[in-house]
Design a protein around this nucleic acid. Structure first.
Length: 786
DNA sequence: CTGCTAGTGTTTTTT
DNA sequence: ACACTAGCAG
């Protein structure tokens, strides 16, 4: 029996061996959070306190779920496949498939990803003749998802004004459309599952009796609905083992509610609150910086990281004039790091927003340094892959209008916008799907549509006995997609991706344990399994089935669980694939701070540390926005193991305009003794002439004279804006940065910087012909050009 | 039906 | 700056 508890520190040990009672583990960055979670599960099983079937472990990402399963099976010789370890959405999908009738869904219900959802909403609004100017589809999408994540159906939403009433009305129409088409969006998976349990006492009792141990990772990221779902599953008797870090809560913008941690503590009367504060990642100075920064936040649960490693190196700070200079310096440092033996993949360049990567990428390319950027299109989001999936979806569920609209004329088969409009009208008239409305369309349009219907019908018939990979290959071929991309000049990559989709289907079949020949659209009984593991309450023997609630469908006998095809389509929606280019390559890592959460690197650059950028200006308008930015900075700092660089630039190109920024307030919140300024530290007031505070925060950076200003929110229009440093100078010197000026000798130019005050005031001017020059305003005769 | 142009948006992101 | 989309001309 492996000693699971060896090498755990006292807090980790205590957390792993807690009794089965509500527990909150406050796990600081780099404190071995995942290890505790996994060891806890293994320990429960090893000591007979739980069986794999009575455990439920929830994560936010598939990556985290996979890591949990692989590390768990490394600790204990168990098959993690049947265990309820997964993402909120994945687990809800599983439950809804098993009980789709109770949930009011067809067996083949399909999942709309965010893009599918938006096109479904656009289609709906078009049909209802809604003015997209007045009610933008994107806003409606946000409104709907937000409502669902609060657990609100249309009838529950408080419609305070006509505008909101319209949104509620559209929300209702959207839900009806989804229901008719047999599709669910992401938040619907959770809400539907929540309602399934809430409205079905025997089913709820069944799952409550089953999941004696509920473990939640990244608890600070849960939203209201996810927390409500967890409470429902826990019931009165079960406990939740929640692991999280309020200081790393950086997803409020997508509905995460840190307050859930406090609520959980009170509502579950948590007696076991354990803080993991021993950090195994970073050197001392880095942790000191993180600790002191985050201490500026209020309403924390409270935590201070400590390390046994020494102070290590100081935190290096660099100021540059421009963003390209900043990039140049980063590249030089990277070269130096590489030459002293640091692996490229151990170096990360972090930024607040994606737009910042461009300059850095350019500079890296020119220097010939391999890098990789996180983010971007993922495999199942590629258009050719989505096209192929749409055909597969239509085979399984002809009512899926989103899939129908996507491929009815792709590859082109003479079905134009007019025909599709006619068809949509007919579908609305008969309240049926577009596929079902085809017979009602007359004329030429009708016959070409009938041709498409025949194609889908033929595909459905001929794939009846095919395995999943065969089905995918057949569809890619028969749909005409393969031929289309074959003939397309730039279609080679897309063609390869379609082949990759066939491979993905084969991999899926093998990973899920289906027989390779299992027909894609039949309900399989997995070979080797005497029954589905889902409802097997194993008491020692994992193959012993004890259905502890009579009348609850056993997925093994119930023809209502997922077919390989439905499973694959779910998989494609729920797991869009890797979004990192050429994984595994020895390359410098470029990513946003958000994307860096959970990762660690020997050397980390945090770039663009400027007011307006980091903290981001938009955060000033949001409640607790600044605190979230600070947590983000905290996450960024704690990624570094040995060496941390902080940099900022005086000017930066953004959205085609040069912006002049002052350094981030975060510099003032760090312990100065840990910082080593590589460029002279200029006191905040000095550059701009006597101001010591960080003015300028919250300014509307995007004001553009050539474009009409849209609605920017109440906060920006009603609250008086603080004075902006450059404007402050403008009042004293009569000039401002960005201003066009004329000089008798150098001609026309633009002011790029202002410095000093009174008789010492200087301006840096970029002349069209003579380059950049510093001019003393008292001497040079600069004229403003209007 | 395809290809161009004008217009627009532009923090962070998973499912 | 740049990428994406909607609308329209060919």
């Amino acid at each position: 029996m492996p000693d699971l508890l060896a090498n755990l520190n006292p807090e980790q040990h205590a957390a792993v061996t807690l009794p089965n009672e509500p527990a909150l583990i406050l796990a600081g960055a780099g404190s071995g959070k995942t290890r505790v979670l996994i060891t806890r599960i293994a320990w429960l099983i090893q000591h007979g306190l739980a069986s794999p079937a009575t455990l439920l472990a929830v994560t936010f990402t598939n990556k985290a779920a996979r890591e949990m399963m692989s590390r768990l099976s490394a600790l204990l010789p168990i098959d993690t496949r049947g265990m309820w370890i997964g993402t909120f959405h994945g687990l809800c999908n599983r439950m809804l498939r098993a009980h789709h009738r109770d949930a009011g869904l067809p067996a083949t219900f399909q999942i709309l990803d965010t893009a599918d959802q938006l096109s479904a909403i656009k289609r709906l609004m078009k049909g209802l003749n809604i003015d997209d100017e007045k009610y933008p589809a994107k806003n409606l999408q946000y409104f709907i998802n937000n409502a669902k994540e609060q657990g609100l159906r249309p009838k529950d939403v408080d419609a305070t004004d006509n505008f909101n009433r319209k949104f509620v009305e559209l929300y209702e129409a959207y839900d009806q459309q989804c229901q008719r088409e047999g599709v669910v969006d992401f938040p619907e998976l959770l809400l539907r599952c929540y309602e399934l349990l809430a409205h079905n006492p025997p089913l709820r009792a069944h799952y409550q009796a089953r999941f004696r141990h509920i473990l939640v990772d990244e608890f600070q990221d849960t939203n209201k609905l996810q927390y409500a779902w967890l409470k429902l599953l826990a019931g009165q008797t079960n406990s939740i083992f929640a692991v999280g870090d309020d200081d790393q809560s950086i997803y409020a913008f997508r509905g995460a509610n840190v307050g859930n941690m406090r609520d959980f503590e009170h509502e579950f009367k948590v007696r076991h609150l354990i803080k993991l504060e021993q950090n195994y990642r970073s050197h001392g100075h880095i942790l000191d910086a993180a600790n002191q920064l985050i201490a500026n936040n209020s309403r924390r649960l409270g935590k201070n990281l400590r390390t046994d490693a020494g102070h290590g190196e100081p935190v290096r700070v660099y100021e540059s004039a421009t963003d390209s200079q900043e990039a140049g310096w980063i590249v030089e440092e990277i070269k130096a790091l590489i030459s002293t033996g640091t692996s490229r993949s151990e170096i990360a360049v972090l930024y607040r927003s994606n737009a910042q990567s461009r300059t850095i990428e350019h500079t890296l390319v020119n220097a010939g340094i391999a890098y990789r950027v996180y983010g971007g299109l993922r495999f199942f989001e590629r258009q050719e892959v989505k096209h192929a999936l749409a055909y597969l979806r239509l085979i399984d569920n002809p009512n899926d209008d989103t899939a129908f609209a996507r491929v009815v004329n792709f590859p082109t088969r003479g079905i134009g916008a007019r025909s599709i409009e006619q068809l949509a009208d007919a579908a609305r008239l008969y309240n049926c799907s577009m596929a079902a409305a085809i017979p009602y369309v007359a004329g030429k349009a009708g016959s070409s549509l009938a041709g498409f219907a025949n194609l889908i019908g033929k595909m459905r018939a001929e794939t009846q006995q095919m395995s999943l990979p065969e089905t995918v290959e057949y569809v890619v071929r028969t749909s005409g997609l393969a031929e289309f991309y074959q003939n397309e000049r730039e279609g080679q990559d897309r063609l390869e991706n379609l082949q990759e989709l066939v491979n993905a289907a084969a991999a899926f079949v093998s990973e899920e344990g289906y027989g390779m020949d299992t027909p894609a659209r039949s309900i399989p009984l997995r070979p080797g399994a005497t029954a589905a593991p889902e409802l097997a309450v194993a008491t020692g023997d994992p193959n012993t089935v004890v259905l502890d609630a009579p009348g609850i469908a056993d997925p093994a006998q119930n023809p209502d669980t997922m077919t390989p095809l439905a499973g694959f389509l779910s998989h494609a929606s729920l797991e869009a694939g890797d979004n990192q280019a050429q994984a595994g390559q020895e390359a410098v890592q470029l990513m946003t701070v958000h994307a860096a959460k959970g990762l660690e690197f020997t050397a980390v650059f945090i770039t663009g540390l400027e007011e307006g950028l980091f903290p981001h200006e938009n955060s000033a308008m949001e409640a607790d926005g600044l605190e979230e930015e600070r947590r983000l900075m905290y996450v960024a700092i704690t990624r570094a193991k040995e060496r941390l660089y902080l940099s900022f630039a005086q000017s930066r190109m953004l959205h085609g305009q040069t912006r002049y920024n002052i350094r981030s307030r975060f510099f003032d919140e760090l312990p100065q003794e840990t910082l080593k300024w590589l460029t002279p530290k200029v006191e905040a007031g000095a550059r701009w002439g006597g101001r010591s505070d960080n003015a300028g925060y919250g300014r509307d950076w995007f004001a553009r004279p050539d474009r009409q200003q849209g609605y920017t929110g109440a906060a920006s229009s009603s609250a008086p804006l603080p004075a902006f440093a450059n404007e402050q100078r403008a009042a004293e010197t009569g000039f401002r940065v960005g201003q066009q000026v004329f000089h008798t000798k150098f001609g026309e130019g633009t002011i790029t910087a202002l410095e000093g005050g009174g008789t010492d005031a200087k301006a840096q001017v970029k002349f069209k012909r003579h380059g950049e020059k510093w001019l003393a305003l008292a001497v040079a005769k600069l004229q403003a050009v209007e």
